[in-house]
Computed example of a mutant assay.
Amino acid sequence: MHTVDRRQAGDECGRSHGQNLKSAQLHGPVTGVEHFTETQGHVSALWNINRQLSFLLGPARMMALFAALSTITSTPHAFALCFAIGSALTLVPLVPVLRLDTPRVLALLAP
């Protein structure tokens, strides 16, 4: 069984705490972190609501599109058109992504 000397453990803990203090001094005040943890729950709830609405409204719209296309053309052709339109709609977010100022975004990510 491995035993640890308390002085050694305390020294390691002190070094770790000192490193945390140094990183806090380098990266700014701790209040930003505290604010982040307070708002993280609200952001998580908002993200979950958005995800649930997407899973509800996306299939509902695709079924409505399929029903509309089924009145115009045969069912297999309506299915193929609905699938093609759905596939094309997944590419729509690429337009704003390609317009992003990439160097500016990368600068925000750098410490």
Rank of each mutant, 00 (worst) to 15 (best):
R51K: 08
S44A: 13
F55C: 04
L109T: 06
H35W: 09
I49V: 12
C13N: 05
E34T: 08
V4A: 11
H35Y: 12
A107V: 02
C13K: 07
R61Y: 12
P59N: 05
T31K: 06
M63V: 11
C82S: 14
A68F: 13
L100G: 01
A9T: 10
V33I: 13
A110D: 15
G14N: 01
G10K: 06
P111Q: 03
L46K: 09
G86A: 02
H2M: 13
P59T: 09
V4G: 01
L91Y: 02
Q19N: 07
T3M: 08
L21W: 10
A60R: 04
T90C: 05
H77K: 14
R99M: 09
V95R: 08
Q25I: 10
L69D: 02
L106R: 11
N20F: 15
I85V: 14
M62Y: 13
F79W: 11
H27I: 03
L108C: 13
V4F: 15
M62P: 00
L109Q: 11
N48G: 12
R7T: 09
V105P: 00
G14E: 08
S44K: 13
D11T: 11
S70V: 07
G10I: 07
H2T: 13
L106F: 07
M1A: 07
D11M: 10
H42G: 11
V97N: 07
P59E: 11
T73C: 12
I85Y: 05
N20P: 01
T73Y: 11
V30N: 03
K22W: 07
L81R: 03
G28V: 01
L81V: 00
D101F: 01
F55D: 00
P59M: 04
N50S: 15
L91E: 02
L91F: 09
G14S: 08
R99V: 01
A9M: 12
V105F: 08
Q19M: 09
A110Q: 15
H77W: 12
G18K: 01
C82W: 05
N20I: 13
T31E: 13
P76N: 04
T90K: 06
P111E: 06
R99L: 05
T90N: 06
S87V: 07
E34A: 14
S23K: 13
A60D: 01
L108H: 09
A78E: 04
S54C: 07
V105W: 03
A88W: 00
Q40R: 15
W47H: 09
A78R: 03
T39Y: 07
A84N: 00
L56C: 06
V95M: 02
D5M: 00
M62W: 03
H17N: 02
P96E: 04
P111M: 00
G58M: 02
T31D: 14
L53W: 06
Q19D: 08
M63R: 05
H77E: 15
Q19F: 10
I49F: 04
S54I: 05
S23V: 10
T3C: 02
L91G: 01
P111R: 11
A80P: 00
V92D: 00
T102W: 14
N20V: 13
H42E: 15
V4I: 15
M1T: 04
G28T: 00
R7C: 02
L57E: 02
L69F: 06
L91T: 03
M1W: 05
T3F: 04
